[in-house]
Nucleic acid binder design. Structure first.
Lengths: 178, 178
DNA sequence: AAATATATGAACTGATCGGTTTATAAATTC
DNA sequence: GAATTTATAAACCGATCAGTTCATATATTT
């Protein structure tokens, strides 16, 4: 996973994958079929981890606005410093392969859809709890948060500035939360 | 430019470039040195066009808020339908190469910095014209707009939904503009 | 029209690509 | 401990990679 994460699909060679997996050539092909199959496995695992974290952060048993703050704070961290430069496998894959690879497109598209809908649910809860501006559509704010965090991953590639991200998130929350 | 735009740096082969440029192999190397040189030329041209458009949209001779609305409306269009699926060469390049290629990193980083600073200037003007909430920091809102539009390019790769983008931009502007 | 650049396509280079085969070594099973 | 499965490393495969060379053709210049 780390290899594809660092260099993308086309940028990762078979020797890179052997080094990363510590497997022999034969074993790798016996286990995953081919490079594309291994890539899908890595992508699935990455997405699964991200969605698991999302479920934790936006757990409906906890305060919705607090969950959203935690979610955004997580992205501030992941787009700062070395983590920022490392970037995001889903975003990199979306840009590199989504247009050419149906299996990849389906996975990336589903990831964004699930994240957007989980955000919308949390925002509706926040609104019901009187912590979100009443005259906004949770679905539109969910889209805004999704685009903002994915944009943070892009900008963080060349400017992984924690202070700027933190101030931006505060400005955003101050404007929508009550 | 179109070839790299469609398939990225590693995903574009020399035959692809010969087809796209209608040049012979010899002429291409005489003109651009190598694949990397040609890529930098394409990237520079793409960035130049984007910054030229930005200067027009945020022209200081016109109303600042109107300029920002035009800027955002442009991104709604560019992330909708076929244009959305096509994506953005800068975003794709940031994810694919910025971490490994200093020349690319410098160009992409400068592009984002310039866009962010132009947005901050326009937002300051809007605030001075009484069209932006007084208690927000233009620099932080500039960062927010930058992340939002670059995130739109990511999400638009798999969900180039004009209505969703339009509603999102309206929600954002309604909350910050007066 | 002759001489001189310039652009071209095709053959070629060495390296690397993803993927397969094979002979051997290491476990596991009986 | 013998037989059998499993994993390994390395040689090998054809294809393709980026990049070069070269002989030929096409302009351009004189």
């Amino acid at each position: 996973m780390g290899a594809f994460w660092a260099s993308g699909y086309h940028g990762t060679s078979l020797p890179d994958l052997l080094e990363a997996t510590k497997l022999s050539r034969g074993s790798l092909y016996a286990a995953f079929g081919d490079k594309h199959g291994l890539f899908l496995r890595a992508l699935d695992r990455y997405i699964d981890e991200a969605l698991t974290r999302l479920e934790t952060e936006l757990d409906p048993r906890n305060d919705a606005l607090t969950g959203l703050r935690t979610y955004l704070a997580g992205y501030v961290e992941r787009t700062s410093g070395a983590a920022g430069k490392r970037g995001c496998l889903v975003v990199a894959t979306a840009m590199e392969l989504a247009a050419h690879d149906a299996e990849v497109n389906q996975r990336v598209g589903r990831f964004f859809r699930v994240m957007e809908s989980r955000l919308a649910i949390a925002l509706s809860r926040a609104q019901a709890e009187g912590r979100l501006a009443v005259n906004v559509d949770p679905a539109s704010v969910a889209r805004l948060l999704l685009c903002t965090v994915e944009g943070m991953r892009v900008v963080g590639k060349t400017d992984p500035n924690r202070a700027a991200s933190h101030a931006m998130v505060k400005t955003l929350l101050d404007r929508f939360a009550t």
